[in-house]
Write a protein that binds this DNA or RNA. Structure first.
Ligand SMILES: [Zn+2]
Ligand SMILES: [Zn+2]
Ligand SMILES: [Zn+2]
Ligand SMILES: [Zn+2]
Lengths: 149, 149
DNA sequence: TATTATTATGATAATGAATTTCATAATCAT
DNA sequence: ATGATTATGAAATTCATTATCATAATAATA
């Protein structure tokens, strides 16, 4: 974690940016948070230890992390975007519509078939999003959900 | 088309709704329009023949069509949603980031693999979205785009 | 260290899509 | 026709996100 933060710091400096306490707090908070957080969730969490931090700084910092390749923007159709760290390899998502649980999966076969599809249409892919919505095991079985989103 | 409009009319009546001229114009305009339209695009198009129609009515009518199963809401991450008629079988989308062209495709193999993935996680799928973003043949080859979005 | 230039912050305002409100109009059943 | 109900459209509201801007923090320079 320390190494990561230092590396990001160096990249920001190299790009003409300056160090800032607020930003450091947000970045550390982001990597500590559970993945797939909204700006609002992250802002609240970060404010517990640093109450002065404005939501705008959280917005800006996540955009910055995205530009640097450390964060990915997600949209599960909830109105607000979510962000996840971009350190682990590519994956897609199963999203529970009841409790909000997000399960990550990776399927090489699906990825390969996507490439074939684009090839058939002379299309040059740069990114894709695959989300499967429904109910997780718990919610489908009738157990009460742990939380709502 | 006439048959379709009458069928929808009957379903609206059966559900306790009433006929309305504005709504009929919007519905017909929607099915005539090229697919994947935004509310704004559809509103403009519909207003050419019926200038008085409010954008709110277009919003409401598309939500209604969606509830009745005749329209699908799409989101290509452009800020505004798009809608397509839900008469043709399920398909997914290739979206050109340069000219906005949308290519529809259907791949049974990918669909099957998705089911297997959810099964592995005890997840009960109800819907999914798969979009591949990139550049269409024309845009990738350097030809000038036909239109921007 | 003092000075200067540049970048970052955070409160507030602005934006824009989507929804809600509400008075009026249209439609349907009696 | 009458009354009840639903639909309309203008305007207001909501909400996430972005822009503005005066101030603060940081880094480079003297
Ligand atoms: Zn669940
Ligand atoms: Zn993820
Ligand atoms: Zn194109
Ligand atoms: Zn389509």
């Amino acid at each position: 974690m320390k190494r990561l933060l230092e590396r990001i710091d160096r990249e920001i400096l190299a790009a003409g940016g300056k160090r800032s306490r607020s930003r450091a707090v947000v970045i550390e908070g982001f990597f500590r948070a559970r993945d797939h957080v909204t700006i609002d969730e992250l802002t609240r969490s970060v404010r517990e230890s640093a109450p002065g931090i404005g939501a705008v700084t959280v917005y800006r910092t996540l955009k910055l992390l995205e530009r640097l390749g450390y964060a990915k923007e997600l949209d599960f159709g909830e109105g607000a975007r979510r962000y996840e760290s971009n350190l682990s390899p590519h994956h897609d998502h199963l999203v529970c519509r009841r409790c909000g649980t997000v399960i990550e999966f990776e399927d090489r076969e699906i990825e390969n078939l996507q490439v074939l599809v684009t090839r058939r249409h002379g299309f040059h892919p740069t990114a894709h999003r695959l989300e499967i919505y429904g109910f997780c095991r718990k919610c489908a079985s009738g157990d009460s959900p742990e939380r709502f989103r």
